[in-house]
Design a protein around this nucleic acid. Sequence first.
DNA 1: ATTTGAATGTAACTTAAGATACTGTGTTGA
DNA 2: TCAACACAGTATCTTAAGTTACATTCAAAT
Lengths: 210, 210
Amino acid sequence: MLNELKENFSHLFEDELIEEINRVGSIKQVKEGERLIDIGEYLRSMPLLVSGAIKILREDNNGDELLLYFLERGDTCAMSMTCCIGHSKSEIRAIAELDTTLIMIPVQKMEEWTGKYKSWRNFVMTSYHTRLMEMLDTIDSIAFMNMDERLVKYLKDKQKIGGEPIINSTHQEIAYELNTSRVVISRLLKKLETLGKIELNRNSIRLIAL
Amino acid sequence: MLNELKENFSHLFEDELIEEINRVGSIKQVKEGERLIDIGEYLRSMPLLVSGAIKILREDNNGDELLLYFLERGDTCAMSMTCCIGHSKSEIRAIAELDTTLIMIPVQKMEEWTGKYKSWRNFVMTSYHTRLMEMLDTIDSIAFMNMDERLVKYLKDKQKIGGEPIINSTHQEIAYELNTSRVVISRLLKKLETLGKIELNRNSIRLIAL
DNA sequence: ATTTGAATGTAACTTAAGATACTGTGTTGA
DNA sequence: TCAACACAGTATCTTAAGTTACATTCAAAT
């Protein structure tokens, strides 16, 4: 774990803190599609993302879902932090977007470190900031953009996370994450294909020129 | 100012910190409708809300606007905090919803206090948490609710902030804040009036049973 | 008192998106 | 091999919301 830590977090944390994370943290591996936490659950530790990606989803009372944002290497979950501290239930669902490696940190330590390490405080603040900005971005999408624009943005984001111009999702899956229906997604994707911007295949979409 | 501070923040901050805020902070009064900060501007100090209310708005490139949330007594602006620290531009617009009194705190102090006072750290964390939850709430509204439901929620929120069952807004103003058109708001308000839930007058709406 | 402009009411039309229904086509596994 | 099923394509219809246009009504200013 020490190697992972030094590689991914040495520019953020002082050596002493890295050591301490190494002592009290535990590695967790999750497979693509695995659920890390669901709405209403409590969490006992805070995740640091070493590799892979996590998608964060919101759901309403009717079971309608919406993708909020992705977490990547070096990120942590701001929601987790507040949940840990306030001992409140999770407001979101977290699912591994890719095979992912995390370091889990016990709650007590987080609070302790906030008093002890300046770099930790900065990290926590920066995380909150980043997440607020992601939320703003999400709000911009759903408030100001039409579904066709949101779909294009979604495809680009997926490409960025996955690193490849091929997205292995069904239309139904995309529809869930954008909180719309499969038919709407099929319709819009078809239009994008007609425009030569993507290529549609069963279970996959190749991005050509978005 | 010391009285204001003791009255509104003594349950949050230790005496020593209250003293210090009193030394370095400055009182600011703003009238209803006055703009505190706009998108793209830099801010030099962080506000603590003593009385009144501030509305926080987002705008897209086309000038379309959306109400994000309100700040009330005891609140601070999480966006400000990150802007101050990161020295980045404001992503939001802040307008006084009521006549409002603020205490402005210089940026350098904020950072200093984060290391020095546990109560300040807690306050900052709690503020971030509260704001994230407000943003989630906003996302729920625009993602999962229809305009009629959003309008009812808007009216209730306004009532809560103002403290009275009368809302002094034009249909056009409401339309701006919900990012829709005046005609849509007039239509939906009329329906609510027909149902006996509100009473419409020029420049004001009386809430009866929402 | 008359003019002007803002605020509101309402009708008529358009459009994006949701809903339903049915078809075809790969894939899997019995 | 073929039944079962998930996935995708598409037509048709409905609806919430956006758009345009015009008529009233009220209030302030001249």
